[in-house]
Computed example of a mutant assay.
Amino acid sequence: MFNTLGNLLSLTTFGESHGAAYGGIINNFPAGLEVDFEKIQYELDRRKPGQSAIVTQRKESDTVKFLSGIFEGKTTGTPIGFMIENENQKSKDYDHIANSYRPSHADFTYDQKFGIRDYRGGGKSSARETINWVVAGALAKQFLKDIEINAYVSSVGEIFCVKPYQDLDFSKTESNEVRCPDAETAEKMISKIKEIKKEGNTIGGTITCVIKNVPVGIGEPVFSKLQAELAKAMLNINACKGFEYGSGFCGAKMTGSEHNDQFNTDFSTKSNLSGGIQGGISNGMDIYFRVAFKPVATILRPQESVDKDGNAVTVEGKGRHDPCVVPRAVPVVESLAAFVLADLFLINKTRNINNF
């Protein structure tokens, strides 16, 4: 059960970075949706490796094959099975860490928990797992229809996109390889990532996500609050270290009179420091949140570490790795946000007899 995301709508996944394939089963997806397969592949292409000079150069087509749950182009209401074959593994690049632990990676914890570890590309701890989430999220996006979900890179290291999201043109997010809709800031981010990559190092960053047109009432009281479900999904992304929504940590500096969102007569609010969520339930305003990512743990320079027996060793990353994870994580953030919203939307349909 711990490789399953969702409540009513659920995704269960399988696969390892250097195994034969990744894939999953989506349960309780509504019947009758006409699937746009090109849009699903487009989302996968946004996430795939090798797409630019500032990401890992592993070459994968990341082509999804649907095995069940779709007939004559429409969802049938039965479990949707899918698979993406791995095509470009170079497992020998990881032989040197078969018995050693990379600092800040999952090597040690996996070994201690399971007593066995697939060291090739990180095995199950690889960020390649996110390919499954993008397939499910791409379907969820089509189900949500009028809801707009736009994520973008808002910082790389100390370089920040300082413009508020309201001043950004999200149609320009895909115009550059770092996926920041502000061209001037994007150039600085790209230069920084290239500089870090040349040093054999990595760097962290943040992604901001904005969700528009969410109807009032999405989210469940107490333990399935909308922000809590979003946070859980985001914090499961590899390398994610933080989540904040609305005013976030800045809200802790404010007084109630400064922070309260006053109502207009149409029930919208004059400000939106709540981030579109009150009491764990959407209030109709924009939902916006920010996700923080640490630098990728594998760096291409020597580091002191230990082996399985506790002996001091020196490890150095080899092979193909992202110098900064955030450009490829943008579609992952959007996909998880879509899947969470679709799940809670379906649950909300059961809350009122008038919905039947």
Rank of each mutant, 00 (worst) to 15 (best):
A239F: 07
I287G: 00
L230V: 12
G256D: 10
G15H: 04
D118S: 05
V210R: 01
T265M: 10
E334D: 09
F170Q: 00
M234T: 13
K124N: 06
F114H: 11
F114D: 06
G275V: 11
G242H: 10
K253N: 15
F160I: 03
G73F: 07
C180D: 02
G69M: 00
F356P: 00
I149K: 00
C250F: 15
F249Q: 14
P302F: 09
K163I: 00
G77V: 03
I26H: 10
S126C: 06
A329V: 12
Q303S: 11
D182Q: 05
K194A: 13
S104K: 15
Y42T: 15
A228W: 04
Y22V: 12
K90R: 13
T206L: 11
G19H: 02
S61G: 08
E258K: 06
K124S: 11
L230C: 11
Q57D: 13
V222L: 14
T208L: 02
G19E: 03
L11A: 09
I149A: 01
S268L: 03
V153I: 08
N213W: 02
H321L: 03
K197C: 06
L336V: 04
S68E: 03
D266A: 10
I40L: 07
I211Q: 04
L139Y: 09
N27W: 05
E38D: 15
Y152L: 05
T298E: 08
N7L: 15
I131G: 15
G205Q: 04
F2E: 15
I97G: 02
F2Q: 15
L5T: 15
I159P: 10
V315G: 08
N238L: 09
D118M: 04
V55R: 02
G217H: 01
K349S: 13
G73Y: 08
G310I: 12
S10A: 13
V134D: 06
I70G: 01
R179N: 07
R120A: 05
F249A: 14
F143Y: 15
H321R: 03
R47Q: 06
V153N: 09
F293T: 14
F82R: 05
F293L: 13
G123Y: 00
D95L: 02
V216W: 07
R320W: 05
Q166R: 13
K308Q: 14
G319T: 08
M1K: 12
R102N: 03
R290Y: 01
P215I: 13
I347V: 14
E199W: 00
A292L: 09
G251L: 08
T63F: 13
P331L: 03
Y94I: 00
I97V: 12
L168R: 00
I211H: 05
I207Y: 06
L44P: 10
P302M: 08
F108W: 11
A21I: 09
F160S: 01
M254Q: 14
G251E: 11
D169Y: 00
H96S: 11
S126E: 06
T269I: 04
